[in-house]
Amino acid sequence: MKIEDKEFKLYIDRDKISSRIGEIAQAINEHYKDKNPLFVAIMNGSFMFASDLMKKVDVRSEITFIKVTSYEATQSTGNIKELIGLQENIFKRNLIIVEDIVDTGNTLNHLISEFKELGPQSIEVATLLFKPDVLKHELAIKYVGFEIPNKFVVGYGLDYDGYGRNQEDIYQLVN
């Protein structure tokens, strides 16, 4: 598949994605059965994952969205720009940060530090994709869909310069 000037090949198909999200939702349902968690979805990339995850979570819960960015083209800039911030009171709440992908961990590290100052009862992370080889921070990621190598991926919410988010499968950049 071609997106703009890059070629991508199928990497994780929609059935595997759906199945794994079901497993993550079941774990969340068991752990948060009486806790009323607040899901904090990081836009734009997590929108498909957050939507499908919430359809399978059956515990009493809420969801909110924040927007931060650190990417340009295929590289993380390392600079976190918060574009739309958290509006909800998270004091004594159980937070589950919903991410599309964790690679360096810069964004999560920044957000967790900010959220901790607001006094939540707990903060956990649910990410569809995790690149452990490039992680720069010690982060406890409780719910991981797939561990992947340090290759650029698009689809299922992830983009290349804004394109490719609408694909139902995940594609990997062809070198």
Rank of each mutant, 00 (worst) to 15 (best):
K67H: 14
F47V: 09
L135G: 00
E138V: 03
G22Y: 12
A73C: 04
T77L: 10
Y71G: 12
D58I: 11
T104I: 03
Q75M: 10
M54V: 04
K92R: 13
E4H: 06
G164P: 10
D52W: 03
A25T: 02
G105W: 14
F91V: 12
A73G: 09
F146V: 06
I123F: 01
E23S: 11
I90V: 14
N94W: 04
T69N: 15
P132L: 05
K151W: 05
E72Y: 05
S76G: 15
G78M: 12
K2T: 11
V68E: 04
Y71K: 08
S46D: 00
T77C: 06
S19H: 12
I96Y: 06
D15C: 06
E82V: 15
F115A: 10
H137E: 07
D15T: 06
F91T: 15
K92G: 04
I12L: 13
I170K: 07
S51C: 14
P37Q: 00
Y11C: 08
V59I: 10
A27W: 05
E62A: 10
L158V: 13
K16D: 15
F65H: 13
Y171T: 10
K116D: 09
P149E: 00
P37D: 00
L158F: 13
L173Q: 01
K142C: 00
V57E: 01
S76A: 15
E88F: 06
S19T: 11
D34I: 05
I42V: 14
T64W: 06
T64H: 02
A50T: 05
D161L: 14
A41W: 01
S113R: 02
I96T: 12
V102S: 07
Y11D: 08
K116F: 05
A27N: 03
V98E: 01
S61N: 13
D15I: 15
Q87E: 13
P120W: 12
D100G: 09
G164I: 04
F49H: 02
A50L: 04
N36R: 15
K56F: 07
L173E: 15
T127L: 01
I112Y: 04
T77H: 09
E23G: 02
D100A: 09
L86C: 07
A27Y: 08
